[in-house]
Amino acid sequence: MHPALSIIFFTTSSGVGYGLLAWIGLLAPIGALPLTRQFGAVSLLLALGCITAGLLSSTLHLGHPERAWRAISQWRSSWLSREGVAAIATYVPALTFAGLWLFDARNGGWAVCGWLAAAGSIVTVICTAMIYRSLKPIRQWYNRWVIPNYLMLAAMTGALWLTAVLAALDVLRPAATALAAAFVLAAAAVKLAYWRSIDQNSAGSTLASATGLPPGRPIRPLDPPHTEENYLLREMGYRIARRHAAKLRRIALGGGFFVPLILLALAWLLRGAAASAVLALVAAVAATAGVVVERWLFFAEATHTVALYYRGEAGSSVR
């Protein structure tokens, strides 16, 4: 599948934002985070900024961005529509939560808004993942690891940015570092499980099932219907070289999980020093860059059944 930059930026940025919002909404009401105005303002502005930038970016790949509002109407059947509804609905408790915090009105209602914002964040990320998870023609997406993958990466990047904000304001506690480290490990495990899964399962559809010709006889594409690349090949016939994919997987693993883990450990050892805040920030940036690579691969490694008609097999990558 063609990796569109607007969608890669959207899912990465909104993943960071919803992850961060979920952690703040969950942890602040139980007193696990500093309740200063400064922390509330910086962390919630970052979360809502990432969410809003991501959502705006998602409209960039539309043929008619000015009609984007229509996309919330078909929530009964469409995961894309449900995502839009969940994203907009989450703003209500999130903005109320931020407002009450900044005006020092942290009461029971504030706590409920925090939890509702956290729940809305989780639901929105699940809806985003379901857009891909529900597409049967793309076996790498129609896979049970896709939802855990999106949830864990949002939780991981959210926790790392939470750590970065706490370290920058010099209020980093060991529990926050431990939380971020735990989710880096969990997200890495889920990502490895996803890659293992798509490497093992093979396409259920073949050129024989697509044409209805007897499966026992070899079938080869002889002539394509057109001489130049068309929309179908550009959008759904995208192929990545196998050795490039392997290299990018190592970059995503190293930059997205291994480097942040080392930096978190260093930031913890140097706690109190100014270097600690820089290390925590670099850890969050590295993880986010790793997720961009991972998201690019999520598209580039995905194969669509329409490639069967052109190449005889859907799941092949270029050597």
Binding site: R67, R70, K136, P137, I138, L232, E235, T305, V306
Partner: peptide, 16 residues
Amino acid sequence: ALCIGCKLCSWACPYG
């Protein structure tokens, strides 16, 4: 008149 050009339908069609 209602299509926003998100292309998701073309991804969902196995047949292109």
